[in-house]
Amino acid sequence: MSIWKYANPVVFMRTSGWLLRWLVPLTAVLMVVGLVWGFAFTPPEMRQGTTVKIIFLHVPSAMLGINAWLMMLVASLIWLVRRHHVSALAAKAAAPVGATMTLIALITGAIWGEPMWGTWWAWDPRLTSFLILFLFYLGYLALWAAIEDPDTAADLTSVLCLVGSVFAILSRYAVNFWNQGLHQGPSLTLMQKQHVADAYWYPLMICITGFILFFVTMVLLRTRTEIRARRLKALLARERMG
């Protein structure tokens, strides 16, 4: 028994189907509880006022925006090395979810920045890196969409994901270098404040857990769809052959 048995599509379908029966309700409960708590039952913060409620969206989505790309990187590596189709399809399934999360982080950040920094958009290193990450997602998705043959698409997008990861990290440091010290403060204090008051800490943790489960659920659902789509394609091809 090893983890690789889940690379078998049949095993994956059975296991993920069983998992999803628990994951879907759990995700729904956690997200609703976390977001309602964050939205309705947290006190205004001294400096930021009620805008502090936005962190319950901003922080989890930003975390997932990055981690979804990491997951895609790992899945791409597994595909390139071990040629498990489920792995390639999981990477494909994760990309739109990661892109959406990145977009949510960007938009909520901009909306929060308007009253706090006095501008919708500042070329802050963090913001800029996220925008670049979003561009990487767009390129990755566009490449998947452009190639017809699924194995070719999986190979090429995996290579792009590897190269893109290296350049995304390079860009992160380049951007830091490019705008060091100008807007560092505002976004960092929020993240590094270890002593976040309990009133914010608990709903934030629930939201983060909820978003992670949301990501897992979405990726599982989308991977199942991709597996079915491939089987459908194979069946149709066989049908045409007679």
Binding site: A142, S171, F177
Partner: peptide
């Protein structure tokens, strides 16, 4: 067009430095 979308983000570090 697709290539532009793929290549331009990769150009970021070179451009910045």
């Amino acid at each position: 067009l697709l290539m532009s979308l793929l290549v331009l983000p990769l150009y970021v570090p070179t451009l910045i430095f």
